[in-house]
Design a protein around this nucleic acid. Structure first.
Lengths: 192, 192
DNA sequence: GAAGTATTTCGATACTTATAGAAATAGTCT
DNA sequence: AGACTATTTCTATAAGTATCGAAATACTTC
């Protein structure tokens, strides 16, 4: 199993399957092996066209061929499909995927103590250092360069704790977010 | 969750992701929400191009937008990705997916009795009617219009039972396959 | 080796679409 | 209301590619 797939491989994979006849070929080969001639008849296209599609499918590692008498029999490389599906599932994980990985042991421990498994804040620590860990835990939910209404800020914060008003004030007090004087707009402060 | 996806939807899904910049957009949005402007800057393309891509991504149900002050914030619809991944995993099941569905209750019962969960034949039934169910169970592993060598026939049959010689003879005797006089080639007999 | 078969390669064409820029639109701020 | 901003729509262009038919290739059979 490959260590990590290059983006270009992924693009190729999708591009290959993003063509009606190729997808139909994959659907057919998922049931049994076919010869190129049979595929052409099933799809209503010429032999050279089928050949072209099979070449692209093979280049993406989706089909393999074996020779049998006059014919070549093509069959689906089911591993390629399921591998890709797993890659997709990994990508589609909940939220904050990248921050989670870069956390120090200390941060991870603090979060384990003060948040539930789904990321909500149970209680607020007394020590400032631990407190900042929680605020940085929240921060990725806000984008840089965007001005948020107070209503929207509360909406987002409510995912972490019901006391949105205090959370909101703390984010400003500790310098993670800024508040506009008049209009009541908030935005994330660019780090360094 | 949708009942069943149309093929055209699947094609659209893959086509949408089979474009480098769109895949990069999905990658970015998987981490946090972006504005269209930020995406354009990150990809190095114009605003109208980003708009075009976002439209296609939205049409495929992959991204959603919410308005925030001047900006529109786009975020990934993670459900769409994981749903699709599950569909893919379902497709990538072992072998014989379609025949399994069209089986009568009787056939299903016979197979449950005489085959293991992975499709191998445990023992051979005495009654001819049940015996034919097993042979038809094997048959999809052979393609129409292809002449197989005896060696290859045995290879395929060995997936079902070790006694490949008897299986092979039975397939011929019951009229499911034919054997060439001299050369020792076998082929599947067209039904009807 | 000669004849026969399936498949691939080549050349040409038609269709799709990614992209940029300009103009139009929709929404927000003062 | 008027100024301002981000986004979308429109138009045109360039690049990619699905498709076919013909010729070339590879392999099997006798």
């Amino acid at each position: 199993m490959e260590r990590d797939k290059k983006t270009s491989d992924l693009v190729e994979f999708f591009k290959v399957l993003g063509e009606p006849n190729r997808l139909r070929i994959v659907g057919l080969l998922a049931q049994r092996a076919y010869t190129a001639e049979q595929l052409g008849a099933a799809l209503g296209v010429g032999a050279s066209t089928v050949s072209h599609h099979l070449t692209r499918l093979a280049r993406a590692g989706l089909v393999s061929a074996r020779s049998e008498s006059y014919y070549n029999l093509y069959s689906l490389q089911t591993n390629a499909l399921s591998d890709m599906a797993k890659t997709l599932l990994a990508q589609a994980q909940p939220v904050r995927p990248e921050s989670e990985q870069e956390l120090s042991d200390y941060d991870r421990k603090v979060l384990a103590t003060f948040t539930t498994t789904d990321g909500r804040i149970k209680t607020f620590p007394m020590q400032e250092r631990k407190f900042r860990v929680l605020l940085r835990h929240i921060l990725p939910s806000f984008s840089h360069g965007v001005r948020y209404t107070e209503k929207r800020v509360n909406e987002i914060l409510s995912k972490y704790n019901d006391d949105t008003a205090r959370l909101r004030r703390w984010l400003v007090d500790f310098g993670y977010m800024a508040r506009e004087g008049g209009g009541g707009k908030y935005w994330r402060v660019d780090e360094k």
